[in-house]
Design a protein around this nucleic acid. Structure first.
Lengths: 217, 217
DNA sequence: GTCTATATCGCGATAGAC
DNA sequence: GTCTATCGCGATATAGAC
């Protein structure tokens, strides 16, 4: 999961991130204090704040690590321009696979929804991160949709960029509803239904498989 | 906006709500302290906590008041079963009108996104409120869509309930993206586009007009 | 019932000593 | 790189004024 840390500082930092991930995932953001994370990692809360500028920044690190994993699974070239790019159909299957995979870690999904909403306030420390995240995702998903639209039979005439915005919004919005009432929201089915409405039938099941984590950082 | 308060307590409560709405909208939730709200309303922070069980509860009141306004505009029967129900086409126009109207108060939109994400954690004080909110909205929007589907030419064969979930998710998700980058997200157009894909063209502009606030509470 | 004043608690965050 | 000390915060509780 983590790149081999060389210095003591890097090891401490990694230990803090591990503790934070575990405690945030299990008990949520508000319920966990910096002092608890610090104790769990074997130092004081001021020690934690030497490595991370604040509680919010610590959450951002935890989530962006996970985010890079998901993104790299879908868009290998984002991390390594030399990486082989799977065909569009396979990438669409992986996108649905990420949805299924996320349902295994509702704690982190909840944290992400929370932070993205908080970060929408201008001036928030994570504001730029999310602006960039959506811009990047929109570009990548638009390119993927464009390829799928062209390859479809019959070809689909729709704006890939706008459809990408809609798809990303649908995923985010459904996740909130799913977190509130897991049994009432069939994420995968509703997403497939939307894609079908766009002229992109997604018959098969989503594999996404175990596979190695494409990000190590 | 507020029903004529009779007792001193009701007046104080309304004053606190007004102060909280103004300060939260302008500076966000985190940046405003209960002590500031109290001072702005002319009492101490303990006094505020006599009327509201906590800062989160105060936010919930501010937002649910606004929520009831929006909902009543779309579904008059929710508040008054005797109220006349506008035809489906008019109600769809009003729904789009609410989107346009919300873009005038990004502060409150941001607060709503934030709270709905936070409340997704089980055990959160507002968890039940949001579960009920989505259940109610899903039911109402599904009924509206069912009427529109039947009246469409040609009639649309789609599951109104699932389409309602998708539409609500789209609205929530787009709002987060819009808050992050207002110019990059054309809310109204993207929603109309989705509805058109569902077989529901929404040619005309959305009036929503000024009109009296349907909720007074 | 409405509200103030006060004290106490752990929290996130900062400054400075070591 | 980590600590102690300190700050204002949200929250709780109590006692009492009007």
């Amino acid at each position: 999961m983590s790149q081999e840390p060389r210095t003591k500082g890097e090891r401490t930092r990694a230990r803090i991130l591990d503790s934070a991930t575990e405690l945030f995932s299990r008990h949520g953001f508000t319920a966990v204090s910096l002092r608890e994370i610090a104790t769990h990692a074997g130092l004081t809360h001021a020690g934690v704040l030497h490595h991370f500028s604040g509680k919010e920044a610590l959450l951002l690190e935890v989530l962006s690590l996970r985010d890079r994993n998901d993104a790299a699974r879908l868009f290998p070239r984002l991390l390594d321009p030399e990486a082989p790019e799977p065909p569009p159909g396979e990438r669409l299957r992986r996108l649905i696979g990420v949805i299924v995979r996320n349902s295994g870690t509702p704690g982190l999904v909840s944290l992400y929804a929370r932070l993205s909403a908080e970060a929408s306030e201008p001036g928030h420390p994570a504001h730029d991160y999310f602006v960039r995240r959506y811009a990047r995702l929109r570009t990548e998903v638009a390119a993927l949709l464009a390829a799928l639209f062209d390859a479809a039979e019959p070809p689909v005439r729709a704006d890939p960029s706008r459809t990408a915005q809609q798809l990303l919004a649908l995923l985010d919005g459904l996740q909130v509803q799913w977190l509130l009432e897991p049994d009432a929201v069939l994420m995968e089915e509703l997403v497939r239904d939307f894609l079908a409405r766009c002229g992109l039938p997604t018959a098969g099941a989503a594999p996404s498989g175990p596979g190695p984590d494409p990000v190590s950082d």
